[in-house]
Write a protein that binds this DNA or RNA. Sequence first.
RNA 1: GUGGGUGUAGCUCAACUGGUUAGAGCAUCGGACUGUGGAUCCGAAGGUUGGGGGUUCAAGUCCCCUCACUCACCCCA
Length: 423
Amino acid sequence: MSAETPAKKELAAIKGTKDILPGEVEVWQAVEAETRRLVELYGYRELRTPIIEPTELFEKGTGETSDIVTKEMYTFTDKGGRSITLRPEYTPSMARAILEHRLDLLPEPMRYYYIGPMFRYDKPQKGRYRQFHQLDIEVFNEKDPAIDAEIIEMADALLRTLGVEGTETLVNSVGCRACRPAYSRDLRSHAEKVRDRLCPDCRRKIATNPLRIFDCKVEGCREQAALFPKITATLCQECREHFARVCSYLDLYKVAYRVEPNLVRGLDYYTKTTFEIISGGLGAQNALLGGGRYDDMMKDFGGPDICGIGFAMGVERLISVLQIRPERKTVLYIAHMGDAGKRKGLELARFFRRNGVESLVEFGSKGFKAQFGRANKLGAAWVLVIGEDEIRKGLYQLKDMAAGTQTEGTPEDLLKIIQDKKI
RNA sequence: GUGGGUGUAGCUCAACUGGUUAGAGCAUCGGACUGUGGAUCCGAAGGUUGGGGGUUCAAGUCCCCUCACUCACCCCA
């Protein structure tokens, strides 16, 4: 079967997006199923929101000065003149849904999750796509530092249950509105004093985002940054105590982690705890998941003063470090001879499918030799043989392809053989 | 958005300093082989060499533009 029209390159998937084909999609399905199972053990419920939102939601939620909002959003005007944006992240949508439906008035704990596509107009590279997928986890109205630790422990448990190895968990506190401004001022004045020893990029960061100087890879900048004050040393009383409790609970869970005072998350809304789990083998985009606390978002939305905490995990990145590559094979292939054989095959396929056995019937008329060859290529575990003799007797041949053995019996007999072997 | 690298069949790769009709392996399809698979042999199909322009008697090969992929910066999942 040769393709009559070769795929035109002009009709390829757009830059930064990908098809997920059979052979790989099974990995996605397994990851999604395992993820749902695990987070529901922690009391999370799925909450789905639209892919499109009013642009304003992200301007207010993600932050007007963030890179995401200033240069990475897919924004357009719809026919009604509204400014619409394809969600670049999930947290603001989640917060919006909570307020819109007043879920904060329900007795259930507000623990939600979602797995789905996000959109950012970035330049694609390893582990970075324009349409990518995230697992998003959020908890609202839970001030206790125990939830900070539990959420990190859950992230750790999820990666373990999926078989991810060689990760490192980084935690930090970025303070709150009471103590962070003072720290930023402090940092700026320190950086200003050594301005001429910093790279051009970092000189610019002094004004825009001094915390980011810690991320610079230039040797001179790193030397200077090492001398800057640590945020962990200048936290206010409340933030310091909160962070100490988070760490002590993590110790209780025996989760391995490293306090990384230089860990700065890029989104503006974080307060107190931030964390990230990184993995080697991901190149420059090494964050498998990242998140933190955002105690002021709901209030900023004009809603009740309830706090939030959560994280997002990159599904593409996760899958790229997974070892598992499950493949789905055909179970039962039905080979036949003659028109009566074909009709009986179609009938029996229905019988087997109704009893939970995946079945494929050969539609063409080939010799048994060719049909067995085809079954073999499809990786069929079983082949049902229907010829004149079988139809006359009402007894069919079932071949176990791996063992090479063949059994005769009624459809019910043969079904039982397949079902027994499955267990 | 800024740099660097790479684009040849579905996949992995060939094609000497520019030189006839761009080849091979794997995969696909057909045959040897109309009552039983994996092997082997034979054959077929599959390409505007990512696209466009230029230099040249002659371009897969050199130059320019563009697109895509890729790595890093940046940002982040």
